[in-house]
Simulated scan of single mutants.
Amino acid sequence: MRNINVKGVNDLGAQQVIDATKIDDNSTLFNVLLHHGSIAKKTEKKLPSIQSLSFRTHNLRDLTISVKEHPTLGYIYKDSGYYRIINDGQVINQKMSSPIGNYPIYSNFSDSRLKQMSNIYAELPSNVKTNVSQIYNSPTKLNPYRIKIDMNDGNKVIADMRSVKSKLKYYPGMAAQMKKKGVIDLEIGAYSYPFKDKK
């Protein structure tokens, strides 16, 4: 085999995919095509963030591996490392020293709440998604569904997990009307107030 190309990777490295397939210069194209199903299965097992994998050949010596990844919905910080969250709140058991890309970090969520929150994030409008920096589970006695969100533009949002999806779409308009950075409270109504000046 002469060339191995990887197409379609966003958060995974091309070399990471090639290593996981165990295809190298000594592999024959015939073998790869004959066993493509089991190679794909083993690779997906090793790299759970891969949704599907397919192989195409050119000139009988070049191979293209096309990868479809599950979309990243953020990262969770635990055991002094970051772990990727993909569809349905599934956490990829692969520790990273720092997150890759512009995705939110989730804090203090139980597994079921993480699944719920990451699914909510997946359905937010893209102009809101790109502004979300960190999402904290922040329940109170009065509201066990309370969350806090740090935005990339410096504002903070307080919201209720049950209504945040429908209310967060108003965020860009509310943020644009604020004269100073502050808090946008979407928990019950929808109002904003500037951060208190530190004396």
Rank of each mutant, 00 (worst) to 15 (best):
D62N: 15
K7G: 13
L34I: 13
D185E: 03
M117V: 13
D160P: 10
I188E: 15
L186M: 15
L12Y: 01
Y77E: 12
L60S: 07
I184C: 08
N155Y: 08
Y191S: 12
G189P: 01
I85M: 09
S107E: 14
Y103G: 02
D19Y: 05
R162H: 11
K7C: 13
S97H: 07
N93P: 03
Y75T: 06
T28D: 13
N10G: 14
N127P: 02
Q15E: 10
V6F: 05
E123G: 07
R84P: 00
A176P: 04
L47T: 08
I86Q: 01
F55G: 07
K78M: 09
P194L: 08
D111C: 03
Y145A: 05
G173T: 08
S138P: 00
D79N: 14
I158W: 13
T57F: 09
N155V: 09
K7P: 08
H35I: 02
K179V: 12
T72N: 06
L142P: 00
S97G: 05
N31K: 05
D150L: 11
V9L: 02
D111T: 12
G173Y: 10
P48M: 13
K46S: 12
K46H: 10
M161S: 13
K115V: 03
I92S: 06
R162D: 13
M1Q: 11
G37V: 04
S80K: 13
N26R: 15
I188F: 15
K167L: 04
G101I: 10
Y106A: 11
G37P: 00
N119C: 04
Q134G: 02
T28H: 08
S163W: 03
R113Q: 14
Y193E: 11
D11N: 15
S49R: 14
K78P: 00
L124E: 01
I188V: 15
K22W: 03
I50N: 04
N108M: 07
G182Q: 06
S138E: 07
E123V: 04
P194Q: 10
G154M: 09
F55P: 03
I4G: 00
K68L: 10
V132Y: 03
K78L: 06
A40N: 06
Q116V: 01
I135P: 00
K45N: 12
K180L: 12
Y82K: 05
K148H: 13
S126H: 14
V17M: 03
L73E: 02
I100R: 12
Y83Q: 07
P194V: 06
S118T: 15
G37K: 10
P144W: 08
I147E: 02
K179Q: 15
D150P: 01
P71W: 06
S27T: 08
I18K: 06
S97C: 01
